[in-house]
């Protein structure tokens, strides 16, 4: 009886994992087939003859490398902007005492609940007025002004640091800026790494930002560039799949490298709230 239930448990686990991973496996195998093979036998997981050529062909027919370069510029800029601004603001909200701090924090948290729809148009108008339309700064710039969610995350972490360290720093005559750079940042590397990782993934995947602010195909990042090919490459599924694999692979690699950071980041935010 015990054995039976163990066996069925494994059965269910296997089935569930299979259901979730099947689409990914199909994406990979589909990217290594010809159109003809895809039409004849789309469900065969192991292609009869693996066509690695699909990848160079995809790279040639879509300017993926250019898109990749743009994506990397955006990711670097946004990661820098977010980590710097959010760490500074979170420092101000956790380690500096000022009278209106409470209200300001409430404002930051409150803005998390605000759907992006409400600020979409004013932001667009503001960014166009500043002449940033169709520039990477339209997407990178706002990250230098902070992100509510990441500020919240960092503040919670900063609050766990022992006050004595800051006390000692103050006695040594460190300014706020000195305390920030010399004590807070070195101690908070894991938390800042989490924010950097999440921002990187977010920018890598971001679709609506480029859709709103970029109109020069030379400046498209991967997420947006790929979408532009969906309609025109409708009959070239194998190439689209190859491009999708290339687009997805770095995120999967990153996920495996930083699995703990990913999972802890998601679960702590869920529990702490």
């Amino acid at each position: 009886m015990k054995k039976m239930s163990q066996l069925s448990l494994y059965g269910i686990l296997w089935l569930t994992s299979a259901i979730f991973s099947l689409p990914l496996l199909l994406m990979l195998s589909g990217s290594l087939k010809t159109t003809e093979q895809l039409a004849r036998n789309p469900y065969r997981l192991w292609p009869e003859n693996i066509r690695w050529e699909n990848y160079p062909v995809a790279l040639e027919s879509m300017p993926l490398l250019r898109y990749l370069g743009n994506t990397l510029i955006l990711c670097t800029g946004c990661v820098l902007g977010t980590t710097l601004s959010c760490a500074l603001i979170a420092y101000g909200l956790s380690r500096v005492r000022w009278r209106e701090r409470k209200y300001f924090f409430a404002l930051v948290v409150g803005s998390m609940l605000l759907p992006w729809h409400v600020t979409m148009i004013p932001r667009f108008v503001l960014i166009s007025e500043l002449g940033l339309y169709n520039s990477f700064w339209a997407i990178i710039g706002p990250t230098f002004l902070g992100d509510a969610f990441f500020i919240f995350l960092l503040r919670q972490f900063f609050l766990t640091l022992p006050e004595e360290l800051f006390e000692a720093g103050r006695i040594d005559g460190l300014s706020h800026f000195g305390l920030f750079w010399k004590i807070l940042i070195p101690l908070s590397k894991p938390a800042i790494a989490t924010v950097a990782l999440f921002q990187f993934v977010q920018t890598w995947n971001d679709f609506s930002g480029p859709l709103l602010y970029l109109n020069d195909p030379q400046k498209f990042p991967l997420a947006y560039g790929l979408e532009r090919f969906v309609s025109s490459y409708g009959d070239q599924t194998h190439l689209l799949l190859a491009a999708s694999v290339l687009f997805t692979l770095p995120i999967i690699v990153l996920f495996f490298l930083a699995q703990r950071t990913f999972i802890d980041g998601i679960s702590t935010t869920g529990i702490k709230n």
Binding site: S21, P23, M27, V201, L226, E227, V230, L241, I252
Partner: peptide
């Protein structure tokens, strides 16, 4: 089970259209 949730939405959409 977790892996699909990190797949970029655009890539996931291309995949699901197929």
């Amino acid at each position: 089970v977790f892996l699909p949730s990190v797949i970029p939405i655009v890539a996931a959409s291309v995949l699901w259209i197929w």
